[in-house]
Computed example of a mutant assay.
Amino acid sequence: MARLVGSDRTPCINPRCRRTAPRDKFPGEMICGKCFRSLPAPARNRHRRFWREIRKWNRRIARTGDAFRRERMEAIRRGWINRLCWHWDTVLKPMVTNPSKPEGLDGFLAEVGL
């Protein structure tokens, strides 16, 4: 399937991956499950932790009736969202779009210039 600019699908951020997802569910950027699982475990776990905290604060905000507490909880949730966005932009996205060269014969020959 070719990547169409005007299509209703969002492509994976990995340039070598051809997977897509519905644009209404993933309006901006997305990484497919296979590419996400290929990332190092510490990066995946940290990303999942951010999402877990965001969902936890969403549940707490939905249950509270006090406006002052809700405002404070929303500020905490925005902090977790900012951390998630920072992690996506500075850690995950560069890992996927610019992977390091694999060690081995091909990497060695590229370093030598052959």
Rank of each mutant, 00 (worst) to 15 (best):
N45H: 12
E53D: 10
T64E: 15
T64D: 07
R69T: 11
P94R: 12
V96S: 06
A67V: 11
R70H: 01
A43S: 13
W86H: 14
R70F: 03
L84H: 10
P94F: 10
R72H: 11
R69N: 08
F68R: 15
P94Y: 05
R83I: 02
I81T: 14
K101I: 12
L84F: 06
R59E: 10
A67C: 00
W80N: 06
D89I: 00
G79W: 09
R49C: 01
E53V: 02
E71F: 03
E74M: 15
R48C: 04
N82R: 15
R55H: 13
D66R: 07
R63A: 15
R70G: 12
N58C: 02
L84S: 14
F68M: 03
R63F: 04
G79R: 12
P42V: 08
E71H: 09
E53T: 02
N82C: 04
R72I: 11
R55E: 14
R49Q: 11
M95R: 05
W86E: 14
H47E: 05
R49D: 14
C85Q: 09
R72P: 00
P94A: 09
R59A: 12
T90Y: 06
A67I: 10
G79V: 05
R48N: 13
R55S: 04
R70T: 04
V91N: 01
D89H: 06
R69H: 07
V96K: 07
R77E: 02
R69L: 12
W80V: 03
T90V: 09
W80Y: 15
E71R: 15
R48Q: 14
E53K: 13
N58K: 11
P99K: 09
V91Y: 01
F50S: 03
R78T: 00
M73A: 13
M73Y: 15
R83G: 10
W51E: 14
A75L: 03
I54T: 03
A75I: 00
D66S: 12
R63T: 08
T97S: 07
R59W: 00
R44F: 09
H47N: 09
W51T: 07
R72T: 08
E74S: 10
